[in-house]
């Protein structure tokens, strides 16, 4: 079955103080595709992920996600764009320490006009999907690394994104927990048909993706 293109990056460049970190990268991603972006530390993969997800603007080039070009948008338009189209999973989880698990999951919905009951219901469903139903009211400080990452994955899914961007999602986890997290991401990709772009420097983790994009010195090799 042919899949539509969900994400396109064209001739993307990024300079920091005269240093070119991303050097004219062009790539495309299909809906429901699982892509891993690999390369050595400092090769520009996190910067490329930030540009593609709308966290950062390219110095040159164009990003189109779900048919909408994000590169010319204002900060607030970008925030809205991210809320409607994108989910994030970070290496260090980035949960809000004062909010419990379900509130962290519902965090992207706080600015949305939605009843608190509905927010909680949606967050609870996702946490149950992550086998975290018993940890709904626990603060991040009471959760293990793997549990925190499950909460982060649930948060990435709460707004029904088209693409999830994961930056070293297993980087802070032991191998067993990392394996379990990768299984969850694979399942989500398969069962929920969510496209996933994952940055990793671990070849074993990268193998879980359908396609591997290699970067070196700001350029895509394959």
């Amino acid at each position: 079955m042919s899949r539509s293109t969900i994400l396109v990056g064209e001739n993307l460049k990024k300079n920091y103080n005269g240093l070119q970190v991303v050097k004219g990268v062009s790539l495309a991603m299909e809906a429901g595709e699982f892509v891993s972006l690999v390369g050595k530390s400092g090769c520009g993969k996190t910067t490329l992920l930030s540009i593609l997800s709308g966290l950062e603007r390219p110095t040159e080039g164009k990003v189109t996600l779900n048919g909408k070009e994000s590169t010319g948008a204002s900060e607030d338009e970008l925030a809205l764009f991210r809320r409607e189209n994108v989910g994030f999973i970070f290496q260090s989880f980035n949960l809000i320490p004062t909010l419990c698990a379900w509130e962290n999951v519902a965090l992207p919905l706080f600015p949305v006009k939605m009843a608190k009951g509905q927010m909680r219901k949606r967050a609870t469903e996702l946490l149950e999907m992550m086998e975290m139903g018993r940890r709904l009211n626990h603060l991040p400080s009471a959760l293990s690394g793997g549990e925190k990452q499950r909460v982060a994955i649930a948060r990435a899914l709460v707004n029904r994104p088209k693409v999830i961007f994961a930056d070293e999602p297993t980087g802070n986890l032991d191998s067993g927990t990392g394996e379990a997290i990768m299984d969850i991401l694979s399942r989500l990709n398969r069962e929920e048909n969510v496209a996933i772009m994952m940055v990793t420097h671990d070849p074993e983790v990268a193998k879980k993706a359908e396609r591997v994009i290699r970067m070196h010195d700001g350029e895509v090799l394959s």
């Binding site: 966290l55 900060e75 607030d76 925030a79 809205l80 991210r82 809320r83 409607e84 994030f88 980035n94 809000i96 320490p97 965090l107 992207p108 706080f110 600015p111 948060r155 707004n159």
Partner: peptide, 16 residues
């Protein structure tokens, strides 16, 4: 700052 960064990343606008 990191927390504010998370809020913005997950879609909170400046005014939020």
């Amino acid at each position: 700052a990191r927390e504010i960064g998370v809020l913005k990343a997950v879609g909170w606008a400046h005014r939020n």
